[in-house]
Design a protein around this nucleic acid. Structure first.
Lengths: 132, 132
DNA sequence: CATCCGTTATAGTACTTATATAACAGTCGC
DNA sequence: GCGACTGTTATATAAGTACTATAACGGATG
């Protein structure tokens, strides 16, 4: 598993880890049942503190993406079954999407161009993902 | 002009102000040439500090949305002319959009449903915006 | 000049992020 | 059971950001 932290990225290190693990799960690089590196091991690899990795793992567990059990390695959780609730959509997607749409307006990007950008990113994502 | 700050929102107060002003400009509620409230006036209205408002105004100026001149009220800037550079797109839209797409995946929202959500929000936005 | 503006300076509090060191508590293979 | 791995908790420290408070500065306007 390859992870990297960007010093210049204003985002906290632990969230950079969370984001990259989520990406790799979505891309199929990491699959349910796979083990994650130990907190000490990953901390050494990235030259960061044990607790920073631990915090990232806790966030991933809270988001339902990995399983954590004392004494065992962290493990990628099986896919969630239940469809998203309206509340999940609201907080996780709708609000931030509206913010991006506003940003796009101020960059003078047309609605159609915005749709095209979304399509392009969805397509790129699909092509990159690992197929069985 | 109506602004409100949400205590429970984890976003900083000054960014909540920035976000709401951007929304109102995009919606046509605020138009180029319009005056914004004075920093002291808005601070009093929202029961926050003068500097917090000032910081929001600085951010809006840095983003090119308002004009600030010593001794004068803050003013909504004219629309930007230049189309967005690839760099602007990358940092302001592409990266966060990819993150939302990953989130959508983990919420088990299909690509089509994601496109539909985007369309819906674009449509709602259009209907809400003020026409001359 | 008085009064409105944005701006700068300084200081203090609170919270978040990341670090460091240490110890605790399950799991697993020998 | 022992030892070497795992995640977990506790405590302390340092740095950065967000917000507040008070005060003063300097341009614009009647």
């Amino acid at each position: 598993m390859f992870l990297s932290i960007n010093e210049h990225d204003p985002a906290p290190i632990y969230l950079q880890i969370v984001s990259q693990v989520k990406d790799q799960i979505a891309a199929g690089v990491l699959r349910p049942g796979d083990d994650l590196p130990g907190v000490r091991e990953l901390a050494d690899t990235l030259n960061i503190n044990l607790h920073t990795v631990h915090r990232a793992y806790q966030k991933l567990r809270d988001d339902g993406l990995i399983h954590l059990r004392l004494g065992r390695r962290a493990k990628i959780a099986p896919l969630r079954e239940s469809p998203p609730s309206q509340t999940d959509l609201e907080s996780a997607l709708i609000a931030p999407l509206n913010q991006l749409i506003t940003e796009a307006y101020h960059l003078r990007l047309s609605d159609d161009d915005f749709r095209r950008l979304v399509d392009e990113l969805l397509q790129t994502r699909k092509e990159r993902s690992t197929r069985p």
